[in-house]
Design a protein around this nucleic acid. Structure first.
Lengths: 358, 358
DNA sequence: CCTTAGCACTCTCGACCTGAGAGTGCTAAT
DNA sequence: ATTAGCACTCTCAGGTCGAGAGTGCTAAGG
C-alpha cells in the first residue's frame, strides 16, 4: 500500500486506465471526479464500487487527492507528471492552427523583431487560453550586425546596436567631450566592419584586450572609438519578458478566488522571477514542463509552466512558453508550444539572418 | 428642491462644507458616510439630524447617493466634479517625492527614451497607488534626428529611425533588389543630412512631392534612396501604451468583486481604447480629469482618469496619467500628475534634444 | 423658522440551522 | 475479485433570526 514506485511501475494496466480517465475528465470539467462518473463514462465495464477501491489505492500512492471527505477526487502533481510522461498521446495540431501560426509569424506581418515577440506571445495565449510568455534573447550571446552612434544634445550620444536577428537595442551614453557627427559615423562604420558577426560578449572581451595591449600605440581617434564601444555595447540587462493573455485566465474556475488572483498578478509583476523560472524550465534541454511545487513559485498558485527554447541554428536565443493552472490540456498544449518554438526559430532565421551573414 | 444650478451656485456655504466633508471622508474610508460621523468629525457644531436634512437635499440635487435605504451616503460624479473645480485645495507635493521623481527621471538613471517611459509610468503608479499610464509620442509629429539602414538577409533591410528626443523605431522592409551595404550607408547619410530636423509627416510630404516633380531627372541612385525612405519612414502605427501598477489596484476595496476585476482587465487589454480615452482627456488643453460616466469606458467601472500632456517646448508629444476608482485623492493626485508631466517634458528636453539641434 | 431630540422603520450582515444531494467507505453476498 | 447496499460525512443553498447602523419623520424648543 505504499508508493512502491513513483514511476507508476507498480500500477496495473487497470489502475492506469482509471487514473488516466480521472485526469482527462478533470482537465475538462475542473471538478472533482467521482467513481460513478468514471464507471459510466469509462470503457471498462466495472462498477463504481470497484473503481472506488482503485481510486482509494491511487490516493494512497499519491496520485489522487480529495478536497474533502465526500467529494470526488482530483489529480496531484505526481499524477500529471505520470500522465505527461507515460500516458498522454500528444494531440496533433489542427491544420487550421498550423496555418494560422505560420501566416502570423513567417508571413508578411511582423515589421520588426520586437513585434515578432509580441505576436508570438499573443498566439501562445490565444491558442491555449493560458498566459503566453516570450523571453527576448539575452544580449550577451547575440551576434552583432551593426552599430550606430547618433549625437544628441551636448556630450550625449545615442548608441544603437543591431543584432543579426533583427533586434535593436539603444542606450544613451555621455562622452567626455563633444564628438562631431562625422567622427561618430566613422566610428560606427569602423566598429560595424571590424566586429560585425561576433557575439557581444566576444566583442567586449576582444575590445578590452586590445585596449590593454595596444594602449600605447593607439592613436587618439581609435582610442576614442574604443571607448565609445566599451560604453555603448555594455548591454547586460536581462531579457525582456513579453506577456499576453493575463486577463483570459480570469475566466478559469481556479481563479474564482480573489486572493489567488492577487497572488497571480504579484507573481506576474515580478519579471525577474519569471525569467529565472522560464530559464530553469528549459535548462538541460530535456525538461520542458514545470508543475505545481516543482518550484516555489508555481506551488503556491498550483500553476504549471510549459516552455520551449527558440534560436537560430543550434544556438538557443531565448525561451517561450505558457503559464496557467496545473489543470490544462497538456496533450494539446505541449505540442503547440513545441511548434511555436520551432516556428519562431524559423521566422528568425528565415527572415532576418541569412546566407550573406558572415 | 430641484437642481437649480449644477455648478453648486445654489448651495449655501453650509451645504458646501457638509458636502466637502462627506467627500473627504469617503475618499479616505471608502465607506458610505453617515450624518453622525459628519456631525462628530466636522467643525460646525451641528447635530446629526440637521446634517441629515442637508444631506437629503444634496441627494435631491444629485450630489450624493445611497447604496440602500439605511446606509450612509456616497458622493456622485457631479460631487467629484464640483469638489475638484471649486472646493479642493491642491496639496503640495512633499519635497521627498519631488526629489525622488527628479532623481529617477532627470538623474543618470534611464538609459534610453523607452526606459524613460517605463520609469515614468512606474513612478505614477507607485506614488498614487493607481495604474500609471504613459502614451509614447506619435511618430507623425516627431522630429527626426537620424535614419539608418542595415542589410539583413536577401532583399530585406532593417530601417532604423531616431527622433530628436531619443526615441528609436525600427522596421523591416523588403526591397526590389539586393542593395549593398555601402549604398545603404550612403542613402542613410544623405537622408539624415537633408531631412534631419523635420517632422516625419513633413518629410513624407516633401518626399512624395519631389518624387512626383523630379521623377524624370532623378538619377537611379537617388530614386532608389527615396524609395527606401518612402517605405522605411512609413511609421503610422498609433502610440504605444506603457502601463504599470495594475496589480496594486487589486487591493482597493472597489475591486473586491471578481466581475469588476474581469471588466477592468478587459478594459486594460484594449490598448486602442485606452489611447483614445487618454487623448480625449487632454484634448482642449484644459480638461484633465475624466470621471465616471463622462465616457462610456469609465462609467461601467466607476473609474476616473487624471491625465496631462508632455512635450518639448510648446509642442505636445504625448500624454501621461493615472487610472483608478473614482474615489481617489484628487488633492494629491492632480498636482502629482501635473508635476510628472512637467518633469518628463524637462527630462526629454534636457537630456535628449538640445541646443545643437538644427 | 431653523434646529434638534426621539423614535419607528428599513436594510444589511453575520451566525446559525436545516435538508437535499453527492460521494465515499465498509460490509456482506456473489 | 467484484459488486450491491447502506450508513456516514461533507458541502451547499436557502431560510430564519437578531444585532447594528442609519435614515426619515414628527414634535418640541430656541
Amino acid at each position: 500500500m505504499q508508493p512502491t514506485n513513483l514511476n507508476g511501475g507498480a500500477l496495473t494496466p487497470r489502475d492506469r486506465d482509471i487514473l488516466k480517465d480521472v485526469i482527462l475528465t478533470f482537465i475538462l470539467t475542473a471538478e472533482p471526479v467521482s467513481s460513478r462518473s468514471v464507471a459510466k463514462h469509462g470503457q471498462l465495464g466495472l462498477s463504481a464500487a470497484t473503481i472506488r477501491n482503485v481510486m482509494a489505492d491511487l490516493e494512497d500512492w499519491g496520485f489522487l487527492a480529495q478536497p474533502h471527505t465526500s467529494a470526488g477526487r482530483v489529480p496531484t502533481r505526481a499524477a500529471y507528471h505520470l500522465f505527461i510522461r507515460t500516458m498522454m498521446e500528444a494531440r496533433a495540431i489542427p491544420a487550421r492552427e498550423r496555418r494560422y501560426i505560420e501566416e502570423n509569424l513567417t508571413g508578411a506581418a511582423p515589421a520588426d523583431a520586437d513585434q515578432l515577440m509580441e505576436v508570438t506571445s499573443h498566439l501562445l495565449s490565444e491558442l491555449t487560453n493560458q498566459v503566453g510568455i516570450v523571453l527576448t534573447p539575452t544580449w550577451g550571446d547575440t551576434v552583432i550586425k551593426a552599430v550606430d552612434f547618433v549625437p544628441l544634445s551636448g556630450r550625449k550620444v545615442l548608441c544603437v546596436v543591431i543584432s543579426n536577428t533583427g533586434f535593436v537595442e539603444n542606450k544613451v551614453i555621455e562622452t567626455d567631450e563633444v564628438t562631431p557627427r562625422e567622427e561618430l559615423v566613422r566610428a560606427a562604420n569602423y566598429l560595424t566592419e571590424s566586429f560585425g558577426g561576433q557575439t557581444l560578449r566576444e566583442i567586449r572581451d576582444r575590445l578590452l584586450r586590445r585596449m590593454d595591449e595596444e594602449r600605447a600605440q593607439m592613436d587618439r581617434w581609435l582610442s576614442r572609438t574604443f571607448e565609445l564601444a566599451r560604453r555603448g555595447l555594455d548591454l547586460d540587462q536581462g531579457p525582456d519578458v513579453v506577456m499576453d493573455g493575463t486577463s483570459a485566465l480570469l475566466n478559469q474556475p481556479e481563479l474564482a478566488d480573489l486572493q489567488r488572483v492577487r497572488r497571480m498578478f504579484e507573481t506576474f509583476a515580478d519579471k525577474a522571477r519569471m525569467v529565472s523560472l522560464l530559464n530553469q524550465c528549459v535548462r538541460g534541454g530535456g525538461v520542458r514542463v514545470l508543475i505545481g511545487d516543482d518550484s516555489d513559485l508555481t506551488s503556491e498558485l498550483d500553476f504549471s509552466l510549459v516552455a520551449a527554447p527558440y534560436g537560430v541554428g543550434d544556438r538557443t536565443l531565448g525561451t517561450l512558453g505558457i503559464f496557467g493552472p496545473s489543470r490544462m490540456e497538456y496533450q494539446k498544449i505541449i505540442p503547440l508550444v513545441d511548434f511555436l518554438g520551432e516556428t519562431l526559430s524559423r521566422a528568425l532565421s528565415d527572415s532576418f539572418s541569412g546566407p550573406e551573414a558572415k
